[in-house]
């Protein structure tokens, strides 16, 4: 394996993800009948933020700058573990799926650490909510992965995505879509366009960041959205057995469809009442649990 291959993956994961929030915003604008921001808005924002200065809270330690950086590295490393359709991933090994889930947890730890640095009631509230609801989200993710593992008989991410039966794939896709919305702080769990409401979860945690660290947080969020979208697409269309070019096209189309679906959900549904959030997360978990049980029963009757 040459140095070129990892570099390609790295470039892909750095350059492509900021496109997704742009697509979502365009969909929302179209549904609302507005012109909307340019598709590449996030790229402009990131470049602008990278040149800006930082306003740091007087209470913040150096950890306030380190935490978003580590979170970004962790998210990026997690993303590198995800197989890209026929292209696979760089260094697959047994149990890389657990490493991926825990790298996302590391990113969460760092974001929460940064939020606690500022000593504000608002950000403390967001952190408390984020880490509490993350418990439910994490159960869902592990259950979804267990379904794939039980079905495919492999604990390596590259080999995990093989075709599920129609009903199982539908159930699991609904569950993972709910988790995608929750983990990426989209409507109906959270609203990425506002920071000012008391029902916020994730977005209040990053209120005090500015300049380059804020750029890393925005970029990390885009990577995470892309990561979940790619997992979701490969659950529905396991494209890894197609020829390379075709599978990548399918993957790109699928990710686009998921992104549009997120945009449509955001345009058509209002944010959930705060006390309902655990309920919806539990429903997401159940949508992942049923295919697990069905897979187990189906396979043990064979």
């Amino acid at each position: 394996m040459s140095i070129l291959e990892p570099a390609c993956y790295l470039l892909f994961w750095i350059l492509v993800p900021p496109l997704l929030p742009g697509i979502i915003n365009r969909v929302k604008a179209k549904v609302a009948g507005r012109q909307g921001p340019p598709l590449l808005q996030l790229y402009y924002d990131l470049c602008k933020l990278w040149r800006k200065n930082i306003v740091l809270s007087t209470l913040a330690s150096p950890g306030f700058l380190i935490a978003p950086t580590v979170a970004w590295v962790a998210t990026l490393t997690a993303a590198m573990l995800i197989p890209l359709a026929g292209a696979g991933n760089i260094n697959p090994f047994d149990g890389d799926v657990i490493l991926m889930v825990y790298l996302l947890a590391l990113a969460r730890f760092c974001t929460a650490w940064g939020a606690m640095e500022t000593g504000s009631a608002f950000e403390g509230m967001g952190t408390a909510r984020e880490v509490s609801f993350a418990v439910l989200a994490e159960i869902g993710i592990i259950t979804a992965m267990l379904t794939l593992i039980m079905h495919s008989g492999s604990i390596t991410l590259v080999n995990m995505f093989i075709p599920l039966s129609g009903s199982n794939a539908t159930l699991l896709a609904i569950g993972v879509f709910i988790l995608l919305l929750a983990e990426n702080c989209r409507v109906p769990f959270d609203d990425p366009t506002t920071h000012l409401e008391l029902t916020m979860i994730h977005e209040v945690m990053v209120l005090d960041h500015s300049g380059p660290p804020w750029a890393l947080i925005l970029h990390g969020a885009a990577i995470k959205l892309m990561l979940f979208a790619i997992i979701l697409v490969q659950i529905i269309f396991p494209v890894s057995e197609m020829p390379l070019g075709q599978s990548l096209l399918w993957l790109a189309g699928g990710v686009l469809a998921v992104t549009i679906a997120v945009g449509l959900v955001e345009s058509l549904i209002a944010r959930l009442a705060f006390r309902r959030v655990p309920l919806l997360l539990t429903i997401g978990f159940l949508f992942c649990l049923f295919p697990l049980l069905l897979t187990w029963m189906g396979m043990s009757y064979e």
């Binding site: 200065n53 809270s57 380190i66 950086t69 500022t118 209120l207 005090d208």
Partner: peptide, 25 residues
């Protein structure tokens, strides 16, 4: 990767920092 990125970040922003009370909306 983490150590290199963090060090790079800290060097990159070392002259860009202003201190102010927590903003928090």
């Amino acid at each position: 990767l983490g150590v290199v990125t963090v060090l790079g970040m800290l060097v990159f922003v070392r002259n860009k920092i202003h201190r102010a009370p927590t903003w928090d909306c």
